[in-house]
Amino acid sequence: MRGEPIQALNNGFNGLISMLRTDPQAMDSLHISVITFDREVHNLVPLTDLASFQPVEIHCPESGPTHTGEALEMLLKMIDSELVKGSTERKGDWKPLLFVFTDGKPSDIQKYRMCIPKIKAMDFGIIVGCAAGPKAEVSFLKELTDEVVKLDTTDSNTLTTFFRWVSSSIEMGSKSQGTGKTLTLPPPPNELNIII
């Protein structure tokens, strides 16, 4: 991803943060961690509360492999150490929400597939896969989650719409629900194609 699409992604993502900042519930409770994955996997922004979150700029190399599996592996480790589970002495975090955004397909497919059952066992509130642009392959994301959105284009309008929907999905994450149940996502706007 480069040129206009990456610019649009950055604008869209930072726009998402601005949108969330106006939501009092999110301001009180939301924490965000950003992992970027290409040839290298980085925890670009370690888990940060929304009030302290700084605008970020995501860079993408012009070519090379996409290490989605390694990113999931990093995520698993981070969840293990950062997520607070409730007990009689400690208040638990809300269920974490996972959004995987890619414009390609995993190059480390074996590792990717190895991580999937572990991710699924993590009890995320929701996992949303987003395949952005013409080269993004939906089938791999479908292995990870049923909730896959395809963006045909990666212009700034589409991305803004997408992130607005992400924002409303995040707001769903702080409501009481049955244990072990997953969230129902708000209906996506027409621009987004939900893959069944």
Binding site: K91, G92, W94, K95, G125, S174, S176, Q177, G180
Partner: peptide
């Protein structure tokens, strides 16, 4: 009390 590992997780009379 039915308090799950995660915030908001509980059980209901409807279950």
């Amino acid at each position: 009390l039915d308090i799950g590992e995660f915030g908001g997780g509980t059980r209901f009379i409807t279950m």
